[in-house]
């Protein structure tokens, strides 16, 4: 598998006297995967994300994006193009007066020729299903639509990876669904790599791989099935569990014996259905 991001031995602190926010973190991101990073607030998730596009450079260790080291300042423009970030607050990431201007802004910044810009602009707005809003003013859009425009701006730069830094946490449920659906299409059909920093466990169980962070360290790494096989550890570090797992446990206590494989609500429904038909 092609590794597009390699983080090795990264440690970071914000001020001399502060503890390490990232403490010897090593991980890699594979091309085309959907990787979720979970962990409670203050576990270092967002600091890690800022290391990945060179917003901050760690005091120890190295971060390589598509082969470029973030330490080398001459790479920074290329790295920022390769690693697109969608932040939490949809209102904080607009510069253009219209959706079209906003999506074009990033491309202008990167000196993309006009003809190419026109093509890519249309294409990226189509990908996030916002083509009808090209002339709209961003502040008139819903939160979910704003985040989709932010994603279009990133996609237009043809990045290697999109990082969602709790990008759905300020949205209403509908906005949240819009973003996840948009990103799933980009991931599955267009091969875009996604790294999602999230508290939404129903989203995390649907990813290819999960990293669990606690106190600046990666404490677990694996497929959703592997991660949620030992829910006790997640609870110990103060994380919530997906509904299916919490219910499974309560059902076991009520004498309904279930296997420990169901992760999603659909899994559990199917298992219960099978169980009932054999009763």
């Amino acid at each position: 598998m092609e590794k597009i991001i390699e983080v090795s031995g990264v440690s970071y602190f914000y001020a001399e006297d502060d503890p390490w926010v990232l403490d010897d973190v090593t991980l890699s991101v594979n091309k085309g995967e959907w990787l979720s990073i979970i962990g409670h607030n203050g576990s270092g998730k967002s600091t890690l994300a800022k290391c990945l596009n060179g917003l901050i450079v760690p005091q120890k260790g190295s971060v390589r994006v598509g082969g470029f080291d973030t330490k080398d300042e001459t790479n920074i423009w290329e790295i920022r193009r390769l690693v697109g970030m969608v932040f939490q607050n949809p209102d904080n990431q607009f510069v253009g007066a219209t959706v079209r201007d906003d999506v074009a802004f990033g491309m202008e910044n990167h000196g993309i020729p006009r003809e190419k810009m026109i093509d890519r602009l249309a294409q990226s707005l189509r990908l996030v299903k916002m083509e009808k809003f090209a002339d709209s003013e961003p502040h008139r859009l819903s939160g979910g639509q704003k985040q989709r425009v932010a994603i279009a701006g990133i996609v237009a730069l043809q990045p290697l990876i999109v990082i969602l830094d709790e990008a759905t946490s300020m949205l209403d449920p509908e906005g949240r669904r819009e973003i996840i659906k948009t990103m799933r299409t980009l991931n599955k059909e267009h091969g875009l790599t996604v790294l999602s920093i999230t508290h939404d466990l129903e989203e995390a169980v649907n990813s290819d791989r999960i990293l669990v962070m606690n106190r600046g360290k990666v404490v677990r790494e694996g497929s959703p099935r592997e991660i949620f096989k030992t829910p006790e550890l997640l609870e110990k570090i103060g994380l919530d569990l997906p509904l299916a797992i919490k219910l499974r446990r309560l059902l076991n206590q009520r004498g309904i014996s279930l296997q420990d494989t169901a992760l999603t609500q659909e899994d559990l429904v199917n298992e219960l259905w099978t169980l009932r038909s054999t009763m």
């Binding site: 919490k246 219910l247 059902l251 009520r254 309904i256 219960l272 009932r276 009763m279």
Partner: peptide
């Protein structure tokens, strides 16, 4: 609540 939900599931089964 989760506990009511588990009770309901048990009843359904």
């Amino acid at each position: 609540t989760l506990s009511e939900t588990a009770d309901r599931v048990a009843d359904l089964l």
